[in-house]
């Protein structure tokens, strides 16, 4: 069976701002119809990458192909094929809903014959039917964001770039938003989305984890949770979390220790033999353990474990 064509191909992409390397030799390929997540903390280089893919920034070196076109060479040719939603809401607040839609339909050269149908479809999709004449600035956050998505897909682009689309949106709107994304993906639209919400990352078909401009790992959420941890994960509930985590970081057999809410997550080589050792290790230091058990890692655990190692390595070489 032939490989499905790739919608986005990134080869050795680098972006420097002065001496700061925002994006550091990233390589990846996004398949058609995939919901591809770009996960990382703020400042990791997610937005910079997506802006290069949209032709808003010129790469320092390397290449990005979007719909088979080199973005840096022919940004204009790429634009008809992509939809882009930026991190910040960036439609015109002083225009009415319908005026924003008409403007973007016009800028994307939606044919006059289809204009009505497309705008209706976008309103339907954004659940804004009947609200056409509201001034955009007065809409609640979730509505604005659906309108932004609606405006970005008026021209039915095969590829959609969403830069932290759900930041500042309530959980229910966020859920609805992701339903929309999946509907579009089912129709064959490739969705490239950045986020720093771990639970959102779970909605993606595949994820790239990015940290300090470098890609740390790539895979499906299940693969990442299964393969990326270097050991077993233990949940420890105990007193004086701060002192405990400090002590455990240098304890023998503990690969990593971090505070997660009101408990500790420990990465150990083997859960079975480590549990009693940790219980006594903490007891020796006067810390009572209430509960200790092996748990399945979440994406957040994966992320913390991978970036901690990465950071440590970087600091060691620095």
């Amino acid at each position: 069976m032939p490989e499905p064509p790739c919608s986005v191909v990134i080869e050795n992409l680098v972006k420097r701002f002065g001496s700061f390397v925002a994006v550091d030799h990233i390589n990846l390929a996004v398949r058609k119809g995939e919901v591809f997540g770009f996960l990382g903390p703020n400042g990791a280089g997610k937005s910079t990458t997506i802006r290069m893919l949209c032709g808003l920034l010129r790469p320092t070196s390397g290449r990005a192909l979007v719909a088979g076109i080199d973005v840096a060479r022919k940004p204009e040719a790429v634009r008809q094929k992509i939809g882009y939603m930026s991190q910040k809401f960036s439609l015109y607040n002083d225009l009415k809903v319908i005026e924003n839609l008409r403007l973007f339909a016009g800028l994307y050269s939606v044919p006059a014959g289809e204009l009505r149908g497309r705008i209706d479809w976008a309103l339907e999709m954004a659940n804004l039917k009947g609200q056409e004449n509201l001034i955009t600035g007065t809409l609640p956050g979730g509505w604005k964001q659906r309108l932004a998505l609606g405006s970005a897909v008026l021209h039915r682009p095969p590829i959609l770039f969403l830069d932290e689309p759900t930041s500042g949106v309530d959980p229910i709107s966020r859920r609805q938003f992701w339903d929309l994304i999946h509907e579009m993906a089912q129709e064959g639209v490739t969705v490239f989305v950045t986020t720093h919400y771990m639970e959102e990352a779970e909605y993606c078909n595949r994820l790239a984890l990015i940290f300090r401009g470098k890609m740390v790992t790539l895979g499906t959420p299940t693969e990442l949770k299964r393969d990326s941890m270097k050991g077993d994960l233990l949940l420890v509930e105990c007193d004086s979390l701060g002192r405990a985590v400090e002590a455990l970081q240098s304890a023998p057999g503990v690969l990593d220790a971090a505070v997660f809410g009101s408990a500790l997550h420990l990465v150990v080589a083997g859960a079975a033999e480590a549990s009693p050792r940790i219980r006594s290790y903490l007891a020796e230091r006067g810390i009572a353990v209430r509960r200790i058990e092996q748990i399945r890692p979440s994406l957040e655990d994966v992320f913390v474990s991978l970036t901690a190692g990465h950071g440590a390595r970087q600091e060691a070489t620095a």
Partner: peptide, 14 residues
């Protein structure tokens, strides 16, 4: 400043 410039620039407008 408000970011609309970027949104306009990703459209095929010359």
């Amino acid at each position: 400043e408000i970011g609309t410039l970027e949104q306009i620039m990703v459209t095929p407008i010359g």
